[in-house]
């Protein structure tokens, strides 16, 4: 193990490490903690300049209540869910199939198609912006959740294919050979042999894509406009314009907007990290 385990160090060094650890964490998360503190302060504290002192009263419930009951925030959150969940389903479904095709079969052009997905996944969004916006307008899907979902599915299929194909390559191939010898049809091999083995990859990809899409801002701004279709990342800017200088509400709103992926991460931590670090170890 590197670095040398701290248990083998002198007791003083151990104590130092254990006290420094929480301090480092607080320092690391300071900007976020500040926002959390802001979000439970009353309005009065900001007008009197009591930014960093002890809150004169704890208004957490009132602030968050306002965000949920008196603003468009719930609507934006719902939009985000309605954009994110179908995207996750669509991208994972498509990439299970492409990953299977590219991971299991040997045919001419296999690597080229794979590289097309990988390369496409890396391009800057701006090169796609004008044509994709046009296409969405032509389809009559501008400013709809569906328009956003279709693009997200297509784009995320690139990353998901990379992920799925590499995952399938690590599966034991003799299993598929055995099924073929038995005369099992190829689609049944996909459905009954390979798909059950892909469960960990599907779980990992689902949480990853959920986070990516929930946090998307660029495409939300390019393809949607109003409260009826904008997700929460874009909505938060109109929310902030509405509550300009009301820092307690803006803070509460930001925390609400950030929370779902955070919850997802803590619930599915193992899968999330397995997904992010696929390939980090040979």
């Amino acid at each position: 193990m590197f670095p040398r385990p701290i248990e083998t160090a002198a007791p003083a060094a151990q104590a130092a490490y254990k006290t420094f650890l929480p301090l480092a964490l607080i320092l690391w998360l300071a900007p976020l903690l500040a926002v959390a503190v802001f979000s439970i302060k009353p309005d009065a504290d900001f007008t009197t300049g009591n930014y960093w002192g002890w809150p004169s009263s704890f208004e957490g419930a009132a602030n968050y209540g306002k965000v949920f009951l008196e603003s468009d925030m719930p609507r934006y959150l719902l939009n985000s869910v309605l954009i994110t969940v179908p995207t996750v389903l669509g991208a994972v479904a498509l990439s299970c199939m492409t990953g299977f095709a590219l991971g299991v079969y040997r045919f001419r052009g296999n690597l080229w198609i794979f590289f097309m997905f990988v390369a496409g996944n890396f391009v800057p969004f701006q090169i796609l912006m004008v044509p994709v916006r046009d296409l969405t307008l032509d389809l009559g899907l501008y400013n709809t959740k569906l328009g956003l979902v279709l693009f997200h599915i297509a784009f995320q299929t690139g990353f998901c294919t990379l992920f799925m194909r590499n995952f399938i390559r690590q599966l034991p191939f003799p299993l598929i050979e055995a099924a073929r010898v038995e005369g099992v049809a190829e689609w049944r091999i996909f459905w009954f042999v390979v798909l059950p083995l892909m469960k960990p990859a599907i779980a990992a990809l689902s949480v990853l894509i959920f986070t990516f899409i929930w946090n998307d801002y660029f495409w939300a701004v390019v393809l949607t406009q109003g409260v009826e279709s904008q997700p929460v990342t874009a909505g938060i800017t109109s929310f902030n314009a509405q509550y300009r200088a009301a820092y307690h509400l803006m803070s509460a709103g930001s925390i609400v907007a950030a929370l779902p992926p955070v919850a997802m991460f803590f619930l599915m931590q193992r899968h999330f990290i397995a997904g992010l670090t696929l390939g980090a170890v040979k």
Binding site: L94, T98, I113, T161
Partner: peptide
């Protein structure tokens, strides 16, 4: 044939929304 059937929807989507737009730009 099977790999092409499995690839078709994903590749089609990706071509329409990602690869062609690059050239259109």
């Amino acid at each position: 044939v099977t790999p092409w059937l499995f690839l078709a929807p994903g590749v089609l989507f990706f071509l329409v929304y990602v690869i062609f737009p690059i050239f259109q730009s």
